[in-house]
Amino acid sequence: MRRTIRFTVNGDPVEVEVQPHWPLLRVLRDELELTGAKMGCGEGECGACTVLVDGKPINSCIYPVLEAEGKQVLTIEGLVSSENELHPIQQAFLDKAGVQCGFCTPGMIMSAKALLDMNPNPTEDEVRHALAGNFCRCTGYVQIVESVRHAAELLLKNAKQTGAGE
C-alpha cells in the first residue's frame, strides 16, 4: 500500500510515493537520486547515512520515511551554496585532510554541521562526542576532529565579517 508524503529536501518541496515501511535513506537515494548519504550498514550503527531532519542529525537508514512528513531534510547535496561554493565545513575537510576514501564523509560532515549549528566553538571532546556515532575506518578520526574545529574557526570568522558588514 503506497502513500504519498510531502517534505522539503535541501529547500525544495518534494512529494513522493512511498511504502510505509521504507526508511528515509531509501527514498533519498533511490527515489530522489540524492546518493550523497551512504548506506554503510542499514542498522543505525555507522552514521554514513546521517542527514539532518529539522536540524537534528538522524540515521536515515532506520528513520521511517513517514516521520519526515512536513519536515525539513538537509543532505550533503544541500551544503554547496547557490554560487557553487563549498560550505566552510566541506572546505575544512579538504584543508585538514578530514577525508580519505570519502565514504563516511557525507555523514561526518552532516553530524559536524548539526554540532556547529548548536555549538559554534566546540572543544575536542565535544567534537569527539558528537561524532561518536559516525564510523571512519581510514582516518583514525584525528584529522576529522581537526577539520571540524577548523570549520568552526572558518564559520566564526565568516560570522564576524558579515556582522561587521551590517
Partner: peptide, 18 residues
C-alpha cells in the same frame, strides 16, 4: 597541500553503491 577531493565532500563522488 589541501586534498583535491571536492567530489567526496559534496556527495558527488560515485561509489559502486551509487
Amino acid at each position: 597541500h589541501p586534498r583535491f577531493d571536492a567530489e567526496k565532500v559534496t556527495g558527488k563522488a560515485r561509489f559502486i553503491n551509487d
